[in-house]
Nucleic acid binder design. Sequence first.
DNA 1: TATCTGACGATAG
DNA 2: CCTATCGCCAGAT
Length: 95
Amino acid sequence: MTVRGDDFTEAVIAVVESIPPGEISTYGEVAAEAGFPGAARAVGNLLRTTPGLPWWRVITATGRLVPHHEREHAQRLRAEGITVNKGKVIMGRLP
DNA sequence: TATCTGACGATAG
DNA sequence: CCTATCGCCAGAT
């Protein structure tokens, strides 16, 4: 489908909403899935300006939680059953 | 139209 | 682990 005019916004929202509970994704992954690889920053802006989205399921590529929201973020992730440790998310790869 | 901003990413030091 | 710098993109002013 030719992603309609809104493309970016609609696509990113759809991808973020499609993230299953207990799973997480990164800004870069969401951007690429939405069809805008490299637009990780734009994704962050969209999640910030678009309420109602499970933004807590989206973290930075380094496994770091969203800056300025670590507290809120970690708490939400824990509620989803995601393991958080010292502001970082465990992605099935332990040291 | 131009410029700045930002819930980014990667690399370098 | 931290900060600094560059590249990237879309939105806001």
